[in-house]
Amino acid sequence: MRRRAVSFLIVVAALSGALWLGGLALAVQDQFFATAKPPTKEQRPSTAETRQHDEKMDIVALGDSLTRGTGDESGKGYVGYMVDELRRQTDKPIRVTNLAIRGLRSDGLLRQLGQPEIQRQVAMADLIVMTIGGNDLFQGGEALKLDRKQLNEAKRRYVANLDRIFAALRRFNSEAVIFAIGLYNPFGDLDDAKWTSAVVRDWNFASAEVAARYPNIVAVPTFDLFALHVNDYLYSDHFHPNAAGYKRIGERVASLITLTEEGEQ
């Protein structure tokens, strides 16, 4: 009996050994002598797969560190607080896709929107929230470094990009409400607050003007939220909001959503 078992084991081992040798040969053949046949792109995911009118609420968040939630210890960001607020009001399942990337500028967002998968996500959304432009204006987040001439140049480019961003979003998704959240002045307690505030106001005005060219794009101000006691709402980097700051933004956006949803129906 034992003799048989051992002989059997030897045969099995030898056979599987041949298999591993084959695998090794295959590895050599495939990795060293393979002719490159890049996969064809034929099976594209259908971008036509647009928003389903189901019970679920799909929210897509786009933009920079503000949307990502940088500075909020809990990592929620205004998107998280906004969803918390919405969940309190509705039983609908809410799905959030946060596609924001820290440090993103308007040109970067435009490039991101060129990716087919991003387009598909946008197309499926019932609601889009976004922040962009903060990095175009405050380069690096240290302080407002630009002089008047550079500022005008930066604004010109930003407005052109924003226009193309909105046009792209509307092209992929003609129905979803888009909330474009504006900038606040993180330097409101510094000596040159007067000037920086003027610049931010001007910047926000330009953004709102662009948004007004498109249907269902709402420019949401945050300037006022941070106008008083700005340091209470800023993270230790004196640039990004802290949890309390994000909460205020989130609640403001959430309050808009109920209103517009009701207005639609």
Binding site: G17, L19, W20, L21, G22, G23, L24, A25, L26, A27, D30, Q31, A34, T35, A36, K37, P38, P39
Partner: peptide, 19 residues
């Protein structure tokens, strides 16, 4: 040089290398 192979082949290659 990127090319596509079915998973069984991929696994066989990995088993060969692991052996």
């Amino acid at each position: 040089n990127v090319h596509m192979i079915p998973q069984w082949k991929y696994i066989l290659i990995e088993l060969g290398l692991a052996a």
